[in-house]
Simulated assay, not measured.
Amino acid sequence: MCRWLAYTGSPVTLDELLDKPANSLVVQSLHSRLGAEPTNGDGFGVGWYDEHSATPGLFRSIEPAWSDRNLRELAAHVRSGTVFAHVRATSGSAVQQTNCHPFRHDGWLFMHNGFVDGFASIKRDLQLAVDPSLFPHIEGTTDSETLFHLALTLGLQDDPPSAVAAAIGLVEDTGQRHGVTYPVQGTVAVTDGRRLWAFRYSSEGRSRSLFRNRDVAVLRHQYPDNPVLHDLSDDTRIVVSEPLGDLRGAWLEVPESSCLVVDGGEEEILPFAPTVPVAA
């Protein structure tokens, strides 16, 4: 459906992540190796945090990432230690800026690769479950943005794993009551600018691909002559829909039905399962 990248570590220019790797996100927008579709040309977005504001910067466009000159200009100059980036292949919703990921609310960013099956038939029920104070902030028409606002409603800002579990549980419960066998598919990433949570889950148990980098210090020891590794800090963590390169041993698959938590260079993988909110 889509491809995405989440980065935390020492500040880098955006082009170091989006354009320079051999299998960069820009390359994946045109020639994805592991995606459901090889081409992800229905827009893109990038969000980043810096010292100027607690609210992350956000740039989204309906242009294909591989041909957007403004993205190249921006990426060569913006530096950040926390970056979310996403290239989109629509599953049916309109190609418009408000449908491009990442989505932002206050100091939070959210992005998704996958879909809510039968979304048209359950959209009304799901959006009625969104807190009334949050509902006006839904600007687009995607299932992903509705999922984000359900998670916000269910406590994302206090406990992201529990909130995402409840949001997905609500979607599954609603979908199955409408006859949808496998309502949820995909990977999700959430950050508050300091911590990162990445989820891999599908109702069917066959989720979209997701990888994380092996510890940089270990890789630097294994490949002492690789200059790229010497430019990365030891606390660098990159979570991606598919590996950015072919360096053997550099990428580890995030397990099915799990939540990866990254906090200051430390990481933990927890089991993940949806929970149906009591109100449902």
Rank of each mutant, 00 (worst) to 15 (best):
F44M: 10
C100D: 00
G118Y: 02
R195I: 00
A151S: 15
T98W: 07
R248D: 14
L210V: 03
T181Q: 15
R206C: 06
G169R: 07
F272K: 09
D263F: 05
R72G: 11
D143Q: 02
L229M: 12
L134G: 06
S24F: 06
E267P: 00
P136V: 03
E268I: 03
Q176K: 15
S53F: 06
M111R: 01
A250T: 08
V218S: 14
G193C: 08
S203P: 04
L219C: 11
S53G: 11
L154P: 03
V254R: 00
T153W: 02
R124N: 11
L156G: 02
G205R: 13
I138L: 08
L71P: 02
F103E: 09
A85H: 09
Y182D: 15
G205K: 13
P21R: 06
N113H: 05
A75M: 06
D225A: 15
R177D: 13
T146V: 15
S80D: 09
E139G: 01
T8I: 11
L30N: 11
V26Y: 01
E63W: 12
R33W: 09
H221K: 14
L232C: 06
E51M: 11
D42G: 02
R206T: 11
E204P: 04
A151P: 07
P227Q: 13
L134E: 08
G9E: 06
V78W: 02
A198K: 01
L128W: 10
S32F: 04
N40V: 02
R33Y: 06
G245Y: 13
R248Q: 14
A89P: 00
G169S: 06
R214G: 08
A279G: 04
K123W: 04
S93V: 09
Y182C: 11
E37L: 12
D68K: 03
L156C: 06
R69D: 14
E51P: 00
G179Q: 03
L219P: 05
S241M: 10
I168E: 04
A76K: 14
V276Y: 07
E51A: 15
F148A: 00
V216K: 03
E37M: 10
R200Q: 06
H221L: 12
V78K: 06
P136L: 02
R79L: 09
P255K: 11
P183D: 13
G43N: 03
L71Q: 05
S133V: 13
L156F: 03
P277V: 08
T187N: 07
S24L: 09
S207F: 02
V87W: 04
E268K: 09
S202H: 10
Y182M: 14
S93G: 08
W4S: 00
V46G: 04
T8G: 11
F211S: 05
H52P: 00
D246Q: 12
P274R: 07
R194A: 12
T187H: 01
D263L: 08
V188K: 00
